[in-house]
């Protein structure tokens, strides 16, 4: 009479599906932190203790700001998903290594408040949070954000301002390899081209990042720069220079695919990337700022809802 001796224990019921792919936000963010590590290490190697200080202030300010605002908003704290830390670090990567500590703190706090919390928290934001922090600081304290002026201690040049103010002749000596290795002045982490590339490829390889946006963004940069270069090679730099200089790679792998502010469908993702790449070259060519990458990202973010309207028909739809 086995069936009458059935124990009275109750089992947990849930609605299907009972399986999960195992991917969590926390894991994604830990992978992203790991992907940022090589660039951070390289930045410390290039810029020394200054880089450590900027990254530490930015990360700390971002996490604390998020916790404080969440307290004010009566939200459950989410510091343990590390998304605030990642945003803080990404923001730090865009700064000059010698940025004053108070500006870093203000910028990181604004990254979190204006880039995330006013929209309800991580994932609700229609703009890329680190780019918002960068944009506010660039406009508020242009002198402290000027890479050339802030990094006078190093006897190097900043390729993009050289191109902007002295033309292609000034950058003729800068080899792609030196751009990749970050042997020029540039933003703290964003100028460590090779390390950013390694981080990005790691994320792609682990399935934490889709190829659509990074690849189409780089293609967009390459094609637009090639077009200008073909029009007049004396006036416009080569596409390879644009691909490797400034924050191009950083934008391709970390800023453009920022999850909440990028499109979700396949074709829109490709269009978004292509347009972003083209816009960045246009800003670099005609704009007043040497590096247009974060502005291109922000402007394209605003177009995301529009681009995302390009949708396939639902299954069985006629």
């Amino acid at each position: 009479m086995a069936s009458q001796e059935i124990s009275k224990s109750m089992y947990t019921v849930t609605s299907a599906p009972l399986w999960h792919c195992g991917k969590t936000l926390q894991k994604t963010m830990l992978h992203t932190l790991l992907a940022l590590l090589p660039a951070a290490a390289m930045a410390v190697y290039r810029f020394g203790y200054d880089a450590v200080e900027v990254m530490a202030w930015a990360g700390l300010a971002a996490v604390i700001t998020e916790a404080a605002v969440q307290k004010l908003m009566d939200q459950a704290p989410t510091s343990d998903d590390f998304s605030a830390l990642v945003d803080g670090l990404l923001f730090a990567f865009l700064l000059p290594a010698t940025a004053p500590w108070w500006m870093v703190i203000v910028g990181a706090a604004l990254t979190i408040i204006l880039g995330r919390m006013v929209f309800g928290g991580y994932g609700g934001s229609p703009v890329c949070a680190p780019a918002v922090g960068w944009a506010v600081l660039s406009i508020s304290w242009p002198d402290f954000m000027d890479l050339n002026g802030m990094l006078l201690n190093w006897d190097l040049v900043e390729p993009l301002s050289e191109l902007k103010y002295f033309g292609t002749a000034a950058i003729a000596d800068i080899k792609p390899v030196s751009l990749l290795l970050g042997e020029n002045l540039g933003a703290l982490g964003a100028s460590q081209g090779l390390m950013i590339l390694i981080g990005g490829l790691y994320l792609l390889g682990r399935g934490q990042l889709r190829w659509f946006i990074p690849v189409s963004f780089l293609v967009g940069v390459f094609l637009t720069a090639l077009l200008y270069n073909l029009i007049d090679p004396q006036l416009y730099a080569s596409p390879v220079f644009h691909l490797l200089s400034g924050s191009t790679l950083m934008a391709a792998f970390f800023l453009m695919p920022y999850s909440s502010s990028s499109p979700v469908w396949r074709v829109p993702m490709l269009i978004y990337g292509l347009l972003g790449g083209a816009l960045m070259i246009i800003i670099r060519t005609y704009g007043v700022y040497p590096d247009g990458a974060p502005f291109a990202v922000l402007l394209l973010n605003l177009c995301t809802p529009l681009i995302d309207l390009i949708q396939p028909k639902p299954f069985g739809g006629r």
């Binding site: 999960h20 994932g123 999850s259 909440s260």
Partner: peptide, 26 residues
Amino acid sequence: FPEVQPNPCINCGECVLACPARVQPG
């Protein structure tokens, strides 16, 4: 497996890419 929780959607688009019906589940 991680437990299902009523977290807010973060617009990452994973569900859109996985959906065979081509709708936006999120």
